Amino acid sequence: MRAILIAAALLAGAAPAAAAPAQTASSVTAPASAFEQDRQSILAQAGQYRVHFDMRENVSFNADYDPMEGKLSGGSEIVRVVYDQGDRISLQHILVMEHEGKAIVIKHWRQDWVYQPEAVLAYVGANEWALTPVTADQRAGAWSQTVWQTDDSPRYGGVGRWTYANGMKVWTSEPTWRPLARRDAVLNPVYDRYLGTNRHALTPNGWVHIQDNMKMNGRAGGEPIAIVQEDVINTYDRSTSYSPKAGDDYWAATQEYWAAVRDAWDAAIAVSGRVYVEEEAQTGVVTGPPLMELAQRIQDGEITTEAAIIQGRAIIETATKR
């Protein structure tokens, strides 16, 4: 059963889930009211939801490629505040499901927000991410969003601004590179990366995450070639139709371990401002299964948090050496 849960976690984590420790500006320069409005928009994403995932390839830009049929799925997901430090906010997503009367919990993706960042961890291709400077003009009044996978390894990062026109509260990123999601990687596709634009918009009953992804082939070097455009619309509707207890219990039991794992990733990135992590189509990043397994063993009482942290650090150190 544990192997099944880990496989499911990696499948789920691939759907959205890269980004990074960014340095914040030394002071907040935007009006306090605008800054606080942005903060509250970010924090409004925390809660308990029914989620619907809608992925559709729409337009082919390659004569030999036919867009795939759309994919619809869904689940129950809680979003919890990991920390709120004013100009730095972290939100953890946790899937809470039920199978044959038993609760199944899967740690999902994490989103970190930084106000007026000096750098953001961006995907640069070939399983590698690098801290990328953000110019003064780009970061003024802006927030970076860094997305991390189920094992807290990086996925993508970008910078954008919250806007409040036309009765909408929306954050929109600039286009950013992302690695393949597992749902595509297992198909051995002709493309090898995405160029995606993110929008997070609050709705009357929750929020929606909209991705405009151009799937590209950059394997030959030079300028990547567009293959097909995809829309991903993940809708988070507030719900009290299920109990979040299993997810909250998991987080309470493992959050100290995951905090140490986050620190280990940050340390690996800080060595050179870059990090390389090998990925496999079937399982995603190679660190995923062992790091997720250690968290499960903590909750099952099979290993202490301290011992798991030692093993987790070793896993990351080994995986990020080149």
Rank of each mutant, 00 (worst) to 15 (best):
A34Q: 07
A259L: 06
G273R: 13
A126N: 12
E36R: 12
L131Y: 01
P21W: 05
F53S: 10
A268N: 01
A308R: 00
W129C: 07
G157F: 03
V275A: 11
V147K: 13
L131T: 02
Y115S: 06
P117G: 05
G74A: 03
D66H: 14
I309M: 04
Y123N: 10
N166Y: 07
R88D: 01
D249T: 07
Q116R: 09
H93K: 12
D192Q: 05
H108K: 15
P16W: 14
Y164I: 00
A25K: 12
R50F: 00
T146G: 11
Y123K: 06
V286R: 14
D237V: 12
I315A: 09
T135Y: 10
P67E: 14
K245H: 11
G157A: 04
Q149D: 13
R262T: 06
K321M: 02
E77H: 09
T29G: 08
G222N: 05
I104Y: 14
Y194A: 10
P290D: 05
M68L: 15
T240G: 15
L195Q: 08
M68F: 14
G101Y: 10
E69H: 10
S73T: 10
V59F: 07
N58M: 05
A130V: 02
D87K: 13
E317F: 03
H209I: 05
I316C: 01
G160C: 05
